[in-house]
Amino acid sequence: MILVLIEHDRGSLAPASLEALTAARTFGDAVEALTIGDTADGLAADLEAYGVTVVHQAHDDVLGDYGPEAWGEVVAQAVRALSPAVVLATGTDRGNEVLAQAAARLDLPFAANAIELRGSADADTLDMTRVRWGGSLLEDASLTAPTKLVTVAHHAVDAAPADTPGAATPSLLAVEIDPSLARTVVSGRVEREAGVTLATAPVVVGGGRGVGSADGFAPLQELADELGGVVGCSRAVTNNGWRNHTDQVGQTGTRIAPDVYFACGISGAIQHWVGAMASKHIIAINTDQQANMVTKAGHAVIGDLHEVVPAITAEIRRRKSA
């Protein structure tokens, strides 16, 4: 049996979890799901379409909101009670954190961010390909354990419903959670302001070292505003103090997946590329035709971004008013 951890936030499903459910079905074994906290009980119905046979539901006072230790403890107890061959989650911040917590508690190995799983779930060893360097390098690895704990890299699998829906029958999982684990439960939060974010924007206008200064980003912002998008930047920009780190696209910043990514004055080092490579279309603007970002882009303009970007904005405005 494959057990999939369903990530949710106070009862609203994290769509990323559907990727792990989709990957779980490739084994051909029964796919069961685990939801944590009673706020998630309503999710069972959403999981039918993804072929889930049973939804194990864990309830406890400590599970009212997310907490890495309490969630990891629930997964560990689920493994002991249900003996799944494989536990999958999607490799989000929470997915990786919870399976690592569970692995620590079970003293089992854990593999983060697999993009391909090979062989039978019940074999002693599970072979896989997983990402290193944020995806710019791959590693064939083997995981040997009675229960294999694995996350599937986010965006590595396209979520798709099953050919045959499952019953998604709710089943209460008896858990005993030490109240002291409340020490790492979310104690407060400031809701995000409405509007597009770097991770969800349909258009991102990114600037690199070539922008030259903090003020140099003003034309990029204008272009982004014109297209309903947001501004991003490379690590060099953040290190120079021109933009806040929240705008950084890259391995240690935000992974973006816009319809269009304008890469302005960005050379395209690995650190940046792995954060931008999920973009559907890339338009590079660079003085150097040999720049890594230019060779990876679908379209490019060779020239000084300080001249090219305002010209694009002006042309968009001209057509909009025509």
């Binding site: 590079a284 303009v301 000084d304 001249e307 010209a311």
Partner: peptide, 11 residues
């Protein structure tokens, strides 16, 4: 890579 042009004329 399709090079759309050089400089602002490519807008």
């Amino acid at each position: 890579t399709i090079v759309l042009g050089t400089g602002p004329d490519a807008a």
